[in-house]
């Protein structure tokens, strides 16, 4: 890899722009997408790899090329700078999410409690509109306070966020659904909200609950068939 390719690739990553690295496997010749000079077949493969977030192998004029997508990190918007958020935020960063915490209550959303994290103190609907969740964004509401959670969920439901989760019991969620319905959300749309939030691992402590939430976010991201039994391991005789 030449210093020029490395620098361009890193600059795109720093600017959170999607970029694909294409390598000719016979001799290591490399180029990057976007680049107008790229042959159509390689440009198409680069865009497909970025869209699917999966590397591809393509053959052009008898030469094998490896197409390596480098998408900006997935985003997670955490509404509510609460105790569970303090556990969820660093865990999610470890997994690779770019995390933003939204909470207008300045006593909660402090740099002391969330060192180095992007904190937004706007009202939750304004903050969510500005953050503009997309198909690479997860939204988790944790305030447990309808006047903070509901406006955030209202915006999230109108977005393409790949995961929406809301803290609260089944009873709390039933009331929440009734309020969101009054805002005009259809039942099928509200079905996108994971509530009670997180996988059922009988979590008790704040970090355990954070882990259950993060696991559910990843399952949504990867399209896991939750609840499906694992395929039986092959027996020694069969292997």
């Amino acid at each position: 890899m030449t210093p020029e390719v490395l620098a361009t690739l890193q600059a795109a990553q720093a600017a959170k722009r999607p970029v694909a690295l294409l390598t000719r496997l016979s001799d290591g010749e490399q180029c990057l997408w976007p680049d107008k000079a790229l042959p159509g077949a390689l440009a198409d493969a680069a865009q497909a790899a970025l869209r699917d977030d999966a590397a591809q192998n393509v053959t052009l004029d008898g030469e094998a090329w490896f197409v390596h997508p480098h998408n900006p990190p997935l985003r997670m918007i955490v509404v509510g700078a609460v105790h569970i958020a303090q556990a969820l935020v660093p865990m999610s960063q470890t997994v690779g999410f770019a995390v933003t915490v939204v909470d207008p209550r300045r006593a909660w959303a402090t740099a002391d409690r969330f060192p180095g994290i992007a904190l937004i103190h706007e009202w939750t609907d304004d903050a969510m509109v500005a953050l503009a969740p997309d198909s690479r964004t997860a939204v988790v509401t944790l305030t447990h306070d309808p006047k903070l959670d509901d406006p955030a969920l209202d915006v999230a439901l109108k977005s393409e966020a790949f995961y929406i989760g809301a803290l609260g019991s089944r009873r709390t969620h039933a009331k929440r659904i009734a309020r969101l319905a009054e805002l005009g959300h259809a039942e099928a749309v509200m079905g996108r909200i994971h509530a009670p939030v997180g996988l059922n691992i009988a979590a008790v402590t704040a970090p355990e609950i954070a882990l259950s939430i993060l696991a559910e976010v990843i399952a949504a991201r990867r399209g896991a068939a939750l609840g499906a039994p694992r395929a039986a391991a092959p027996t020694a005789a069969a292997a």
């Binding site: 890899m1 490395l6 690739l9 890193q10 990553q13 390598t23 977030d53 490896f66 390596h68 480098h70 998408n71 990190p73 997935l74 997994v95 690779g96």
Partner: peptide, 25 residues
């Protein structure tokens, strides 16, 4: 994915510090 990007950043850091570096993908 972010983990392969971290590896690239680490490799670039070693290179910038004057080390000889190879990358396997």
């Amino acid at each position: 994915m972010s983990d392969s990007e971290d590896v690239l950043a680490t490799a670039a850091g070693w290179r910038a510090a004057g080390e000889t570096v190879a990358l396997a993908t």
